[in-house]
Design a binder for these strands. Structure first.
Length: 815
RNA sequence: GGGUGAGUGGCGGAAUUGGUAUACGCGACGGACUUAAAAUCCGUUGCCGCAAGGCUUGAGGGUUCGAGUCCCUCCUUGCCCACCA
């Protein structure tokens, strides 16, 4: 008998699938399309990790199931290959990112192939291919044309030792990642931004129709942070200046007892009195030196601030109120200034107590609250003519009155900031802009795209805040497309999130040289039907990709405005000890090693799905791996024994058991696949296998025809999960063609009808017995039968008040 | 501090959505095969009890004929965000 040897069969079928191109998707197929996609992986030097395995396997199982159900399935793969790790590696080793990227993607591709994924490899590309980033640059120009790209000065983290800007993740505990005792500072640089804030409303509204986890939708809503309120003007006393504040609670205006400006607010210097000047300057300087971490910590500690010596006039009653500065107000949110209402805002309350500022209550509540500050709704008091109104009514009237006097307006505010895409880095798509002393920032003509990244041999930072590209003299020095005069290229490159904001569209038409994609092919394949990946990209990537999609829609390039119909996040796979997997702890699980050890890809795929529901975090288990391998081996052995058994076509008693086990499994596995309940689907297959062993033990392989149907079905149901063994068994059972394009089996309810059923007997809801009785028996018959049960009868001493019967399930006597 | 999941055997986890709690796998124990071991196969395995039987889904309360599932209070824990005016 042949032994189950995954090493031999997996290699064989992977080659066969590749040769026969069965996973290559046709762009013009009458079958309904299904586009299944995993998150764009970054091809790191370490290779595929277990998280990728879980991610890709989930997508693949659905893709395979849909394909067998008769869909035209597209499951592509590509590489998000620009980025910091490649550049950092180049800085350390001098090996160019072009070389390491090639090695890493080759490695990733080989490792993916070893997992037996049903990917259409003919569509593969990397974001670092100039055929691809040509169109990323093209989209930059599209955004520029549509007024959605602009330049602005913006502070960046800076390391004085490296003489370079740092990304957020290179700032560790407020210091440089390479110089752990060098505090980072901020350096102001001119940067490119995409105006994602123009789409803030659309991005909120679009979430409603999406089949995404509610948690992710909520995170996006919070990130965009839409809040309705009012912008109010406070005149500065004795100065011809006004301070604009944003508030969501204009109803509490009578309770505003001071104003707070962010330390970096532009009016600070101007309004500060001579007497306070020294203190204010000291505070501003100290605040500027605080890095983000300290600011976060400050939230937990005492609030600090300083009085400017200036006063503002409350627009509603002309009260003079002091103007303070404090770092609990951020320049980046709203107008960088607030009206402080200590009676009804916790932070203001804390601050007012700290500095003995008056507190005026203006909203009374009937519900008791502790701590002295109430931020809920209530009835207005101490508010002049608004007294007695509800806070909601007062909110509207006060704003309406101030609008009339032109010192206020209704305003929607967003937490969302525009998207900074400039990176002072080498390893990214160059921004297609030429700076001309006469014409300013001029777009590179579209016919000149791609603007290729020049090959360099030194990737050290320049030391002046510019990208290493600034040293590529021949590349930088160019002519202005408008006036023809000497000009310099933009040396910043684009954020990697730009590359991953449209790649899902390129898979629809990866070889197009005339356009990023054809409208027809995009219309056929998109939107993505199922998008699977980790929750760590919940906000940024998904928000950026949605914004680009909306821009493309507005530009008439596509006929939909949401890219991902359904989104699913896989849970984290933890180490066997329940800890997070990390290289430094040495508790990582290497997928390739598991395959090579002899367990094979099929067992690996099964265990990552079987451990827990796909969206749950769960620890890895080597014993579990051995368990699923044992299961595959049992299926294999049983099929081999069937093949080698004597030919016996006669009907036997085994038929009924085989048929009900088979149809039951088809029903259960199909239903579980519909809702992505992979762990229970695999459990059902194991149970099916166990049932077949029982039949074999009792009857042998009598009735080979029915046995063949059972084993064939087993292979088919197994196919999405363990594609190699399924294909091999299919061939061994002399079935023609690939199992992966054979139609998915259908169950027949007739085989699942039971002649006798077991009914639970309860007394007062407690289980007291069980009876077996002919199906469809009358309730009265069941009742009589139940009363004969001795244990039940013991509990039925008193009068039966009520009987509840759940058909075919249970009978409950209430006494 | 805010948001959001999750607490079920020795372990990972099931439970048709209010109807027989603990499917499936692991581990453990017993048996068969073997000179022996591994592998394989066959049993047993929530807890207490010799048994009949009783008890059991983080804790406590409630609704219901009936609650792992619904409601209230609390405890533990994972993840995400964090002075958002």
């Amino acid at each position: 008998m042949k032994r189950y040897d995954p090493r031999a069969i997996e290699k064989k079928w992977q080659k066969e699938w590749s040769d026969s191109k069965i996973y290559e998707a046709l762009d013009n197929d009458a079958k309904p399309k299904y586009y299944a996609l995993s998150f764009f992986p970054y091809p790191s030097g370490i290779g595929l990790h277990i998280g990728h395995t879980r991610n890709f396997t989930i997508t693949d199982v659905v893709a395979r199931y849909k394909r067998m159900q008769g869909h035209n399935v597209l499951q592509p793969m590509g590489w998000d290959s620009f980025g910091l790790p490649g550049e950092n590696y180049a800085i350390k080793t001098g090996i160019s990112p072009q070389i390491t990227t090639k090695q890493n993607t080759d490695n990733f591709r080989e490792q993916c192939k070893k997992l037996g994924l049903s990917i259409d490899w003919s569509r593969e590309f990397g974001s670092t291919d100039s055929d691809y980033y040509k169109w990323t640059q093209w989209f930059f120009l599209l955004l520029l044309e549509r007024g959605l790209a602009y330049q602005q000065e913006s502070p960046q983290w800076w390391c004085d030792v490296c003489k370079t800007v740092l990304a957020n993740e290179q700032v560790v505990n407020g210091c440089c990642w390479r110089h752990e005792d060098t505090p980072v500072s901020k350096k102001v640089l001119k940067q490119w931004f995409f105006k994602i804030t123009d789409y803030a409303d659309d991005l909120v509204a679009g979430l409603d129709g999406l089949d995404w986890p509610e948690g992710i939708k909520l995170m996006q809503r919070n990130w965009i942070g839409k809040s309705k309120g009012a912008k109010l003007s406070f005149a500065v006393a004795e100065k011809d200046r006004t301070i604009e504040v944003f508030t969501t609670r204009p109803d509490t205006l009578f309770g505003a007892t001071y104003i707070v400006l962010a330390p970096t607010h532009p009016l600070v210097a101007e309004i500060t009195s001579e007497a306070q000047k020294k203190d204010v300057e000291k505070y501003v300087e100290k605040a500027a030196r605080k890095n983000e971490i300290e600011l976060q910590e400050a939230a937990a500690k005492k609030k600090t601030g300083v009085f400017t010596g200036a006063y503002a006039l409350n627009p509603i009653n002309n009260e003079r109120i002091p103007i303070w500065i404090a770092d609990y107000v951020l320049m980046g949110y709203g107008t960088g200034a607030i009206m402080a209402v200590p009676a009804h805002d916790e932070r203001d309350f804390e601050f007012a107590n700290q500095y003995s500022i008056p507190i005026i209550e203006v909203v009374s509540s009937t519900t008791p609250h502790h701590g002295g500050c109430y931020s809920g709704e209530g009835i207005m008091i101490n508010s002049g003519k608004y007294d007695g109104l509800s806070s909601a009514e007062a909110r509207e009237q006060i704003v309406a009155d101030l609008v009339k006097k032109k010192i206020g307006e209704e305003q929607v505010n967003y937490k969302l900031r525009d998207w900074l895409i400039s990176r002072q880095r080498y390893w990214g798509a160059p921004i297609p802009i030429i700076h001309c002393p006469i014409d300013g920032a001029v777009a590179v003509p579209k016919k000149d795209l791609p603007l290729e990244l020049p090959v360099m041999d030194d990737f050290q930072p320049s030391g002046d805040g510019q990208s290493p590209l600034a040293r590529a003299k021949d590349w930088v020095e160019t002519k202005c497309p408008t006036c023809g005069g000497p000009a310099r290229r933009e040396t910043d490159t684009m954020d990697g999130f730009a590359c991953s904001s449209w790649y899902f569209l390129r898979f629809a038409d990866p070889y197009n040289t005339e356009a990023p994609f054809s409208k027809e092919k995009a219309a056929y394949w998109l939107p993505v039907d199922l998008y699977v990946g980790g929750a760590e990209h919940a906000v940024m990537h998904l928000l950026y990709a949605r914004m680009w999609t909306k821009v493309m829609h507005d530009a008439g390039l596509i006929n939909f405005d949401e890219p991902f119909k359904a989104l699913r996040n896989q849970g984290m796979l933890l180490a066997a000890d329940g800890q997070k997997i990390s290289k430094s702890k040495g508790n990582d699980i290497k997928p390739e090693e598991i395959i090579e050890q002899g367990y094979g890809a099929d067992a690996l795929r099964l265990i990552v799905l079987f451990l827990a529901p796909f969206d749950m975090s769960t620890p890895w288990s080597n014993e579990g791996l051995a368990g699923v391998f044992r299961f595959l081996q049992r299926v294999w052995t049983l099929t081999q024994r069937y093949i080698e058994s004597e030919n016996n076509e006669t009907n036997s008693e085994s038929e009924g058991a085989l048929m009900s086990a088979t149809h039951g499994a088809i029903k259960k596995v199909s239903r579980d696949l519909e809702v992505m309940s992979f762990n229970t689907a695999i459990a059902a297959l194991m149970q099916f296998c166990n049932e077949l062993y029982v039949v074999e033990k009792e009857q042998g392989f009598k009735d080979k025809k029915t046995w063949k149907f059972a084993l064939k079905s087993m292979a088919q149901l197994l196919a999405p999960f363990a594609p190699h063994i399924a294909e091999e068994l299919w061939a061994e059972l002399a079935e023609k063609g690939s199992i992966h394009i054979a139609p998915w089996p259908m169950h027949n309810e007739a085989y699942l009808v039971k002649h006798t059923i077991k009914i639970a007997i309860q007394v007062n809801g407690k289980l007291r017995g069980e009876i077996e009785i002919a199906a469809d028996s009358e309730q009265s018959v069941i009742e009589e039968e139940a009363k004969l049960n001795k244990n039940v009868a013991d509990y039925l001493s008193s009068d039966i008040r009520k009987v509840i019967y759940v058909k075919d399930k249970l009978l409950n006597f209430v006494v």
